[in-house]
Design a binder for these strands. Structure first.
Length: 291
DNA sequence: ATCTGTCCCTGGACGC
DNA sequence: TGCGTCCAGGGACAGA
């Protein structure tokens, strides 16, 4: 599930394949709510454009195009942005996987879930956007046009300070975890890193946001940033579908302390990790270390 | 204004 | 073995 680190890893590795290249051909799947810009308009708008830069805002990627247009991408839950030639079992459907010999590593063939495929004017790798569950989004923004999804984003999680969180949590009765997931306050934190950050800070996810002191907020932001940076350094978390543009799996899932470790001993005190549901999301914490 | 619940989608896990 | 059912989760949205 792509959160800030997975999106940032994707950006760093895919940027060299995109920036400075001119899009020659665009292939899409049929229209669906994945396409905020309908496929035909998207193809028309993109063909012939040069990509000048690739930026990240929270969990969004924004490509700056040569004539002032921008291409906005969100990976959703199961989005995969990669180059053709990437090799990973995560890029295959279950049926193609089942037909494989145990040691076989076949190349990827664009399938029904490959919603966007960019071919470039010069030779070189194509870039593909695959998203099985279609929670991802793609939109072409005309010069000067904005998208409320981007406008609403708060400060990037890597730039945020404890004071930002403290200011945003005043008077809020919601559980602190819910607040961490709100992209309008701090952008980029998702379910995994919220749980991990709260554990590092020793704060229970259910605590009312307004009950956090200034030092609590400082510790929490510090904890969240520590796990985000570490995850970027290890290539992100490949817990379900995430795969980097070259097909590598991330390794951060091996460093998880509480996320999806229900019943396992807390790494600090050996109390079994507890799982509850907050904001319709699985939430994991140590009942002893997190108060 | 804030908060909660519902919905989009598909594959994988699980039970019989 | 094979089918059915449930669940995961980001974020938009409706309604309280």
């Amino acid at each position: 599930m792509p959160e800030l680190p997975e999106v940032e890893v994707t950006r760093r590795r895919i940027a060299p394949l995109l920036v400075g290249r001119r899009i020659a051909r665009v292939h899409t799947t049929a229209d669906s709510y994945f396409f905020l810009t309908p496929p035909d308009a998207l193809a028309r708008g993109l063909e012939g454009r040069e990509i000048r830069a690739l930026e990240r805002r929270g969990k969004y990627l924004v490509a700056q195009l040569g004539d002032g247009q921008r291409l906005m991408l969100h990976l959703g839950m199961s989005g995969q942005l990669f180059a053709d030639g990437a090799r990973s079992l995560r890029l295959l459907s279950a049926t193609s996987r089942a037909s494989l010999a145990p040691d076989e590593q076949p190349g990827f063939e664009p399938d029904a879930h490959t919603h966007l495929r960019l071919t470039f004017a010069d030779a070189g790798a194509e870039v593909l956007f695959r998203d099985v569950r279609k929670f991802g989004k793609v939109r072409l923004l005309e010069p000067g046009e904005s998208d409320p999804r981007l406008d609403r984003l708060g400060i990037d999680a890597l730039e945020a300070s404890g004071d930002d969180l403290h200011a945003g949590s005043r008077g809020r009765r919601v559980a602190i975890k819910n607040l961490l997931l709100q992209q309008s306050l701090i952008a980029g934190i998702g379910n995994i890193y919220a749980d991990e950050g709260l554990f590092l800070a020793g704060i229970r996810p259910t605590r009312a946001a307004r009950r956090l002191t200034r030092p609590d907020c400082a510790r929490l932001v510090e904890g969240v940033q520590r796990v985000l940076r570490r995850s970027i350094d290890t290539g992100g978390s490949s817990i379900s579908d995430f795969v980097s543009p070259d097909g590598d799996d991330g390794a951060y899932q091996d460093e998880r302390r509480v996320y999806a470790r229900t019943g396992e001993p807390c790494p600090q005190c050996a109390t079994p990790i507890r799982r509850i549901v907050l904001a319709q999301r699985g939430t994991h914490y140590c009942p002893t270390c997190q108060r």
